[in-house]
Amino acid sequence: MNLVNWTRKNLFSNWHDTLLTFIILFLFYISIPPLLSWMFFDATFFGTSKKDCSGTGACWVFIQVWLKRFTYGMYPNDQIWRIDLAFIIFFFVIGAYFFVNTKIKKILFIFLTIIFPFLAIFLFHGGLFGLEEVETRVWGGLFLTLFISVFSIIFCFPIGVLLAMGRRSKLPVIRYFSIGFIELWRGVPLITVLFMAAVMFPVFLPSGTNLDKLVRVIIAITLFESAYIAEVIRGGLQAIPKGQYDAANSLGMGYWKSHILIILPQALKIVIPGVANTFIALFKDTPLILVVGLMELLGMVNMAKTNPAWLGLATEGYVFAAIVYFIFCFAMSRYSLRLEKQLKTSN
């Protein structure tokens, strides 16, 4: 009874609502069944080659066969356990984070932010302590997407905070440097920055010395995104009432102490949605590294769909990539919402 009332009230309350409802139902009717039959009912899920696909529906065999490449790129098959190990440690620590007390939380936090990055790089790259060296040229797939995003996010956040504070500084040198830096990076498109890092930069270096392309790209993305983060955080700093600054000063706190203890904790809490926004945008910008020859998830999909044995399966590849990107972006946005609620102090 409730349902009928609800339907009558919301969907059929007058003639134009009714018309709209029917139009939308009709649109559903013509679009959803073909989509479902393409994705599921007529699709082929298991097999080993394109020939196993029956024809009418999607050929998910493509994804199944290529999943290893989509996930790890051209990373040597016998070394893949290293990536798995690093990610297992990462997710284990993250998972443990929610269940332990504050003291262990602190240790875990320090481990994650300071020790883990080096451990991960050591595991991925190797070349020390008998671990075989795996050069960054074979890194790829989802692994590379996550690597670039995570490291750019870790590095660009502190730089962004410093730039935001610098832009509000009373010292002209620092202020003008920060303004110049931020406006420079915001004024150029990311693709140009990537080109400079990957193509032009090596030309300026003396021959013989060379910085790894992946490192150059991560530095480029970090500097680029730190400018955006800086502006987001500056918004938070400006939203803090002047009374807070005065109160901190009157307690005898200096610039750094008042910022670290009073201003930044409040400001950062305000800007969580903006920061999350920037990070999600950063994550979605990573496919741009295709233009400099790094093969992240979308790059590997592009590679796979041009393999002579798998021609004509671009749609399946793109749908798969879209789903993966959506999962990660959605998880990030949910996490930021959760963080917002957790840190919300009633005022």
């Binding site: 051209m74 080109f195 193509v199 032009m200 270096l205 233009v291 400099v292």
Partner: peptide
């Protein structure tokens, strides 16, 4: 052989830079 996938635009620089 160590293969480096390259985009059309960066291929010549990669060669000149010794990558």
């Amino acid at each position: 052989v160590k293969y480096t996938p390259l985009s059309a635009k960066e291929r010549f620089t990669a060669l000149q830079a010794g990558d």
